[in-house]
């Protein structure tokens, strides 16, 4: 082992420690009996029990899940259409604007996206009366808008890598172009669509800033609830909630990684 690889290995070790130690500590402290979150008071699972009795958290979690399921599905439909248009329809009017609009939401700072969508909803309400109140509907629309960009990019790059003569062959054999999309294109990009859906789902569950802008009174998503609690400092029941989320997502990601690896 030479000097260079020793350096690389130490940086890797430090980097992974940097990424994971904070998470591990949150998990450890979630089993802390003490109600002062930073002092160790013995092992206990009492905070998990409190979590289950907290209706506010359950309501917020339920709202977040509903938004995530709906917006991920809408984002997948719209994003797939956008990816198809960008990868397969070479020339159409307004293409440059379109591809610019697709990727921009991904890189736009959240405060700007949130503010601009809220102002849109307020303006629309003045003009048309819709949306009457902000909450599930407005957050879902906001999440769909920024996560469809991710789906579109994933689908587009899958399509770029795919042999276009597959679709031409189907057309050559008598498949009408629209039929060909369902016979050939969609089955082949299905893995990309699933990946896009999962990403959109997670992004929606994760979003705090945009939801804070476009939600109305009385509708708090899970991140909004967590934020309102942690603003006041470290708290043990949030440790427990964080542990559940971290474990749940880690297991999910690990499983899909194992499945994907076996298929390759």
């Amino acid at each position: 082992m030479n000097r260079q690889s020793r350096f690389i290995i130490s940086v890797l070790a430090f980097g992974y420690a940097f990424l994971y130690i904070p998470l591990v500590l949150v998990i450890v402290y979630s089993f802390n009996d003490s109600s002062i979150a930073t002092v160790w008071g013995g092992f206990s699972t009492r905070w998990y029990g409190e979590l289950l009795r907290n209706d506010q958290i359950l309501d917020a979690a339920l709202l977040s899940l509903r938004i995530a399921l709906t917006s991920a599905t809408m984002a997948t439909v719209l994003g797939t259409m956008a990816g198809l248009a960008l990868a397969r329809f070479r020339r159409f009017r307004g293409r440059t604007l379109f591809s610019g609009m697709i990727t921009s939401p991904m890189v736009m700072p959240e405060v700007i996206t949130g503010l601009s969508l809220l102002l849109l909803f307020v303006t629309l309400q003045q003009l048309t009366g819709w949306p009457g109140q902000r909450g599930f509907g407005t957050i879902t629309i906001a999440h769909t808008t920024f996560s469809m960009a991710y789906v579109a990019i994933i689908v587009q790059s899958r399509l770029m890598a795919m042999d276009e003569s597959l679709e031409e062959a189907a057309m050559d054999l008598g498949g009408h172009p629209l039929r060909v999309i369902f016979d050939i294109t969609l089955p082949l990009i299905a893995p990309a669509m699933i990946a896009g859906w999962l990403l959109a789902f997670t992004l929606s569950l994760d979003d705090l800033v945009i939801a804070s802008f476009v939600s109305g009174p009385g509708s708090s998503t899970l991140p909004m609830y967590i934020f309102s609690k942690v603003k006041l400092g470290v708290s043990p029941d949030i440790n427990a909630l964080a542990t559940l989320i971290i474990l749940f997502i880690s297991i999910g990601v690990l499983l899909s990684w194992l499945v994907a690896r076996r298929r390759v």
Partner: peptide, 20 residues
């Protein structure tokens, strides 16, 4: 005539055999 209406068929260079 569009390709799906022609009585002409093609064997592609990449063969384009549907993988699924």
């Amino acid at each position: 005539q569009p390709p799906y209406e022609r009585h002409v068929n093609m064997m592609f260079q990449s063969y384009a055999v549907f993988p699924h």
